[in-house]
Write a protein that binds this DNA or RNA. Structure first.
Length: 210
DNA sequence: ACATTAAGTGATT
DNA sequence: AATCACTTAATGT
């Protein structure tokens, strides 16, 4: 845990804060599709992502889902942190997109560090603001982009997050993430393949352009 | 060989 | 862009 912390955070956090993180945080290994957080959960711990990727999904009452954004190394969901300061329940779901590692930090401590460490304060604010940016981007995408554009953005986002141009997923799964139907996804993917932007296989998509 | 699951396609709304 | 109804293809048992 020590080395992993050093790797990613020694540049932003001071020694003492790193030591505290090490002391109070617990290292959690997440497997693909593990749930980090679900809608309605009361949050007492907030994960700090060391590596891997997590997708943040919004779900409505009917169970329809839509992907808001992805988290990657060094990210934390400051939204959920601020959220749980006022004891609110989570409004989103976090699912590991691939095997990942995270340090779970107790909210109690996070609160304390807000006053104690400038770097922590800045980290949270920075994280909060970039989450907000991503959220706004997600709204733009939803409101103004046609399905074909949305799909392509989804693919290239995913390629960046996964650091792999070959995505192991199904048309069905993509349809769920974008809240559309599998048939539509299949057709649009076919189009993209014809435009030489991707290559299609079973359970696999190779993204050539992103 | 058979069943299951993923993906492709035309027609309709 | 969604839905239906169906086909084809790949994969698991």
């Amino acid at each position: 845990m020590h080395e992993k912390l050093q790797d990613y955070f020694s540049v932003i956090f001071e020694e003492e804060l790193l030591r505290e993180i090490e002391k109070y945080g617990k290292l959690v290994k997440l497997k693909k599709d593990d749930l980090l957080i679900d809608v309605g959960n009361l949050i007492k711990e907030v994960p700090l992502l060391l590596n891997g990727a997590v997708k943040i999904v919004r779900e409505d009452k009917k169970g329809d889902e839509i992907v808001l954004y992805f988290l990657e190394r060094g990210d934390t969901c400051a939204i959920s942190f601020v959220n749980c300061l006022n004891n609110a329940k989570s409004k989103v779901r976090g699912v590991a997109e691939k095997d990942s590692e995270a340090i779970y930090l107790p909210v109690k401590k996070l609160e304390e560090w807000m006053g104690k460490y400038k770097t922590w304060r800045e980290f949270v604010i920075e994280s909060y603001s970039s989450r907000l940016d991503e959220m706004i981007e997600a709204i733009d995408t939803l409101a103004f982009m046609k399905m074909d554009k949305r799909l392509f953005k989804y693919l290239s986002d995913k390629v960046k997050i996964m650091r792999d141009t070959t995505l192991h997923t199904t048309h069905h799964q993509i349809a769920l993430d974008l809240n559309t139907s599998r048939v539509v996804v299949s057709r649009l993917l076919k189009q993209l393949e014809n435009e030489k932007k991707i290559k299609l296989y079973r359970n696999k998509i190779e993204v050539l352009e992103f």
